[in-house]
Design a protein around this nucleic acid. Structure first.
Ligand SMILES: [Mn+2]
Ligand SMILES: [Mn+2]
Ligand SMILES: [Zn+2]
Ligand SMILES: [Zn+2]
Lengths: 148, 148
DNA sequence: ATTCTAGTTGCGAATCAGTCGCAACTTCAG
DNA sequence: CTGAAGTTGCGACTGATTCGCAACTAGAAT
């Protein structure tokens, strides 16, 4: 079962710099939160964690920064089947896409990388002549411990 | 390029009846809208269309009915990469799942069925011992006419 | 180091989809 | 035809996200 690996810390900041984007204390805090996250975070969670690093960080800044990171393809936005309220989740975009499976009973999120998934994306590019920017496969169901 | 086919009209109503669920004028209107939809509809659009069939239909009733239909796996809820504001889209769930590709330039939604997609789901069930209830593959990018 | 400006921020108000409680109404089994 | 359970409309409410704007930097140019 291939799992996605974690990233080199400080990478996000470097990537933004490389693209000539201004660095601020607020952004540094938000980027750090996203990079060191152990799980998928909702905007509100990112805000609270970022404020622990820099109390000045404001809600709007979090949303604006997430927008920036999405635009630059540095984070992915996820639904995770709305495991909790509305609102989306965010995670650092890694080199290789992965699949998210959300257990409808215990809420656990399982991540999975698959060559079949990669081929599927190739098929879409080829057969549909569609140029993929972002591909999101989200599955709801029951994890190994919860299905009976 | 295999495309998803449309459904027999009146089918949704029959299916709900078969499950012993009460039929009301409001539900009839909403079901008809969903069944005859030519594209993926947001809740607000479903409301407006249903009100044309029965002026009494209320917003809450639309949401409650969508919830009912989701619970019974008779509609699928989609994101379509937030092509327009927040809010989700709904469509009649057909026998076989399909993939949605949203063009980030012209907004066109392309639907596609794939055996590779079917195998991928099988892989998840097998390799991750995950029991799939709903699987959503949504792709954002550029359609054949918009990519340059 | 100082200056300057475009880019960024905090704030508070606004938006807007979706939810909820409740009393009135309807469905449909008996 | 009746009654209980299920459904509805309404209006108030929530909670995530957005926005306008004046004050505030970052960092390029001097
Ligand atoms: Mn969503
Ligand atoms: Mn579809
Ligand atoms: Zn589980
Ligand atoms: Zn297009």
């Amino acid at each position: 079962m291939p799992f996605p690996q974690t990233e080199i810390p400080g990478r996000l900041q470097a990537e933004l710099a490389a693209r000539g984007i201004r660095m601020t204390e607020q952004r540094r805090a938000i980027l750090k939160v996203i990079e060191t996250a152990k799980k998928h975070l909702a905007a509100g969670q990112i805000l609270r964690k970022a404020q622990r690093l820099n109390a000045a960080v404001d809600r709007s800044t979090v949303y604006r920064t997430l927008e920036l990171l999405k635009r630059h393809r540095m984070v992915d936005e996820l639904d995770l089947m709305h495991m909790d309220g509305d609102g989306h989740y965010y995670e650092r975009k890694l080199a290789r896409d992965h699949i998210h499976m959300a257990c409808l009973r215990c809420g656990k999120i399982t991540e999975f990388m698959s060559e079949i998934f990669d081929s599927l994306k190739q098929q879409l590019e080829r057969d549909c002549r569609f140029s993929i920017v972002v591909a999101r496969l989200e599955v709801g169901g029951y994890c190994s411990e919860c299905r009976h």
